[in-house]
Amino acid sequence: MDEIRTEAQQVFRDVFGDDDIVLRDEMTAEDVDGWDSTAHINLIVALEKHFKVKFAMAEISRMKDEDQNVGGLLRLIAKKLGKAG
C-alpha cells in the first residue's frame, strides 16, 4: 500500500502542478487546490495510465461523493492491482 501511495502521490503532484502535495488517507478534493470536475478526470486518466488499471464511471463518480477520500481511492487502486488488504 505504501508503494501505491508513493507512486500515486507523484501522479497527484504532476496533475496539480504542486510538489508539496503529501497524500493522506483523510484528504478530500477540498484539500487540494484546483481539484474540480475536469481536474478529477485528468487525475483519473493519469492514474489509469500509471497503474495500468481502468476505472468504471460509477467508481469515478463515487470518488466525488462527500464521504469519499484519498484513502478510498488508494484502496480501490490496490484492489484493482490485486494488492488489497
Binding site: 470536475s37 475536469t38 478526470i41 483519473i44 486518466v45 464511471m57 460509477a58 469515478i60 463518480s61
Partner: peptide, 9 residues
C-alpha cells in the same frame, strides 16, 4: 457522470 465525464475523459 453520464454526459460530461465520458466526453471529457
Amino acid at each position: 457522470d453520464y454526459i460530461f465525464m465520458p466526453l471529457y475523459k
